[in-house]
């Protein structure tokens, strides 16, 4: 049995592992090469390499304005989600232990609710109260779906905090607010920033709610979707490649920040 475990089954497990990784990463290995093609159509493998479609993207007012809109919405959404989520974590931490678990489930529920339902709900509300086609309302909806991630990330950091550090600040002479900002907040900050980056991309990537909410304007995912339906130009590949690179850099940066902070606290 032992021989088999170190032999065949070990090989099978690692083959399975790399199979799954390849499956997940496959689109990246197709999209990025295609984006550097100069041909008129999406074609793999690419012939005639060049950056023509990147130029198209940056020079096309429609693409650029969609990108700017997505950026604005994501910025507002992540700001709201980060502030509200962090405050939720603090109140969960300070609140009664009995209700903490239940409240945490409640606050993080948007994670398991399909976006289509949230989209429908927000859409109905938007029509009812006359804020349809508002990017601020869209940012609000995005903040709702991004906040659970903030609560999870910042909450994990908060649980690692030694509560006596804030007590020490209090007894040394700091009021409750001052004690929080001088003892607890600096240790939470890396996690808060990481959560903010995460929240930003939750909003930046989101298509369904945006599709319901906006009619006169387009976010970047909406533009990609429309482009794919109509003409399938390699611009989409160029945009996607850019998104992959930017997202990867931001996420890795945020994760490193979070880990380094965990290291400082975990000493």
């Amino acid at each position: 049995m032992d021989m088999q475990r170190t032999g065949f089954s070990r090989f099978a497990l690692s083959a399975y592992f790399w199979g799954v990784i390849a499956f997940l990463a496959f689109p990246i290995f197709v999209i990025i090469p295609i984006s550097f093609s100069n041909s008129q159509f999406l074609r793999f493998p690419p012939q005639d390499l060049g950056i023509r479609w990147y130029e198209t993207y940056f020079n096309d007012a429609v693409w650029v304005s969609a990108t700017i809109l997505s950026f604005k919405v994501a910025l507002l959404a992540s700001l709201v989600a980060t502030i509200v989520g962090t405050m939720a974590v603090i109140s969960l931490d300070r609140g009664a232990a009995r209700t903490r678990q239940m409240l945490t489930y409640l606050i993080t529920a948007p994670i398991i609710i399909p976006h289509i339902f949230i989209a429908l709900g927000v859409f109905i509300l938007a029509i009812r109260f006359g804020f349809a086609d508002s990017e601020i309302a869209l940012a609000g909806a995005h903040a709702t779906i991004a906040m659970p991630f903030v609560v999870l990330i910042v909450g994990a950091a908060m649980r690692q905090m030694d509560p006596t550090i804030e007590r020490a600040a209090r007894v040394l002479g700091a009021g409750p607010v001052r004690a929080f900002f001088s003892a607890t907040f600096p240790s939470l900050l890396p996690a808060i920033v990481a959560a903010g980056v995460f929240a930003f991309f939750v909003s930046f990537d989101e298509l369904i709610i945006a599709q319901f909410m906006l009619s006169g304007k387009e976010t970047l995912p909406m533009r990609i979707w429309a482009d794919l339906k109509l003409e399938v130009s390699p611009t989409v590949a160029a945009v996607s490649s850019l998104l992959i690179v930017v997202t990867t850099i931001a996420m890795v940066g945020a994760e490193l920040l979070r880990r380094r902070a965990a290291g400082v606290r975990g000493d």
Binding site: D162, T164, I165, R167, A168, A169, R170, V171, L172, G173, A174, G175, P176, A179, S182, A183, P186, S187, V264, R265, D267
Partner: peptide, 20 residues
């Protein structure tokens, strides 16, 4: 009085230094 107005010093088991 809240802790900050009692003017007492305190040392904790976990040291509780400000890590930053």
């Amino acid at each position: 009085l809240p802790p900050e107005q009692r003017n007492v010093g305190m040392v904790f088991q976990s040291y509780s230094l400000f890590p930053h």
